[in-house]
Write a protein that binds this DNA or RNA. Structure first.
Lengths: 215, 215, 215, 215
DNA sequence: CATGAATGAGGCTTCATTCAT
DNA sequence: TATGAATGAAGCCTCATTCAT
């Protein structure tokens, strides 16, 4: 039970920071969320700054590791691999408690450049690598067209990151809704085939495809 | 507010808010950026909150208006229209001084839900409408496949919004770089055709096609 | 009027620090004594530390300067010069607002070694020099015995410094009283002649001497 | 309090209080010095205040008692008695672990008037009595001149108390040095004979005389 | 209109004190 | 008896806001 104390605090801190931003979050809020007193925070973290950095650092779990292996060993089509990467990353993000990290890190990058760099190196770069590998595999095998891999990666990742940000902003404030499955499906659909109707495509992708209009 | 003073203040405020967030921005900073004294801010704005709201509200210029008209009157292919919408919106955003708004509004949505809603109604909804109209036009004309329009719109918009956010976070901190043209080209390329090499497609799209790797 | 603000604060700060010590003094007390608000202190001083250092530094007025000159130019007997030095220094200390400095500096020397050194260099060393010069003059002229000048200086100064410390401790708490004139007279008397009855001395010093028993 | 634990704590407390003052001393420091945990302090002392008072009270050992007896029974010259009193007191102070008490009590008198009064009654008054008795004995026997006994006592005591204070402030901070033996010799020399060369005196005091300059 | 000195509420942080083990 | 994790009151400091000039 005592070992969980710091972890509880970090979870509470991440939640609060994501919701209000660093400066607008009062330590009292974090303490209340964690069910401890203000002073207790200082038993485990030197300062509000340190708490922020820890909340970012400790919540960057090594999500990507297994995924990297799986990409190497994947034996199906590159198309399936790409889908696997998208779905896999999304699942990893969405299931973990770190869905708020992108919003937080991007919002506070100016105030905590070190944390931003850390997040960039440990998450962004590695996930990009994942996508890039899948794309290159497809290009090399002739399954995919010639692409600007580096920037196609960004195209592929943006909708997912935006969905996470949206979840912690517009959705949280009940200004907009968000159906993650549809978002993911739409992303995969566009990613594979684009919007343009291309004759032969229809038949080939039928098994994967869920591309209907809005229900 | 016909004078320049308030406008200067709003520009300065937006800059500062985007860079540091609302709570971490001191009025003194804004005053310094605007070249006025702290007290002067209160001649034009009731409070820091009011200044924030004004900075958001006043910087949402009616970008979309003309664009909406143009979509209605566009006479080329739907493909060209979609490209036009993407490029047009990007251009409008990028050229204006409001490139930081998305980052700011999303980051502060919890603290300023009214501002978020305002931004949502005035910008998000309308731009979505622009994309949606272009997509539907293509679907109806048979040029585009059947699509989940609502969520395909988000797929199309996400890379642009992310690029803007990135510009004011990772790029600003010199953690990452960003080539906007390549980003735009990659987006359009994927949006139209996806990654999969589709036999008949090559020939048909050749005239338009810029879907190549990095130059 | 605005120019006196910092001076008022320093006076209030010195008073408070002398009375309670650095750590036990609340800035609110100082502000109240100076008739300003807590925040105002920070318009003029960066921190409590800085305020302390300034209170010490700014209150070390160049008391000794004129005295040093006078010693050089003094034309009477060395005995009269020594009396002059004792009385002159006492007067300078007692009349100024810095009577509490010795207590403060000595009490806080561990916490503010720089301030202690500053006080030592600017006050202690110079006053010692004053006494030492007077003593050496008397020894050279044959008026005084051979003496351990350095430590006799300390003997001569100690009762005065102790009286100042006493004034701000025991006397302030009404635990003990202190008659400064008698203290000074007793010091001068002992300094010149000691306690031992020496035959020829009585007649010579009669004019100076006020050496009676307790009233 | 027969065990050693409380005594160790009191010793540690006195050290810490002398060094930093009451308010600036943390109980954790005292605990660390005493080699116990923070909580243990509360097994023996009710509060920080109580610990302070005990540290003062318990460290005022009955130094003076024997000395008072010895003065009554002393059979040599009053001059020798005075020297005995000076040296005896000095020795008692210097050898004991309470050399820091004067600094502490005087510095904290405002915050702990009761402790100051206690110290005054138990130490100051009694030591003054010691000196006063020695002086009166000499005056009555005709060995000493008529003196303002009460204030001469202070003159005699000041250099010793100052030396103790100095030891725990300027000397501790390595700002100044202090040779206790020379200080004591200088004090005794001045106390007996003053600085003035008095014709007949030389011969009479030769046997005792250490009244010379630095060796 | 414009300034910037002054204010004081509020947040971060420390540390004396408590208490379950 | 001893510990040290936990608490929360209190103090330093910041900064939005006011106001006399």
């Amino acid at each position: 039970m005592p070992l969980e104390r710091p972890a509880d605090i970090l979870t509470a801190a991440l939640e609060a920071f994501v919701e209000n931003g660093f400066a607008a979050t009062r330590l009292e809020d974090i303490a209340a969320r964690a069910g401890v007193s203000k002073g207790t925070l200082y038993l485990y973290f030197e300062s509000k700054d340190a708490l922020f950095k820890a909340a970012v650092r400790e919540n960057i779990v090594p999500i990507v590791e297994r995924a990297e292996q799986r990409v190497d060993e994947f034996e199906g089509s590159s198309r399936d691999l790409l889908v696997e990467v998208v779905r896999g990353w999304w699942k990893a993000m969405h299931e973990s408690r770190i869905t708020g990290l992108p919003k937080l890190v991007l919002a506070e990058s100016s105030n905590f450049p070190e944390a931003a760099r850390f997040y960039f190196d440990e998450v962004v770069v590695r996930v990009r690598g994942l996508f890039a590998r899948a794309l290159r595999r497809g290009i090399e095998s002739g399954e995919f067209r010639e692409l600007d891999v580096d920037y196609t990666v960004r195209v592929a990742m943006a909708p997912i990151v935006m969905a996470l940000i949206w979840k912690h902003s517009m959705v949280k404030c009940q200004i907009d809704g968000l159906d993650f499955d549809r978002q993911l499906n739409a992303l995969i659909d566009i990613l594979l085939h684009g919007v343009v109707r291309e004759p032969a495509a229809e038949t080939k992708d039928a098994p994967h495809g869920k591309r209907r209009g809005q229900p």
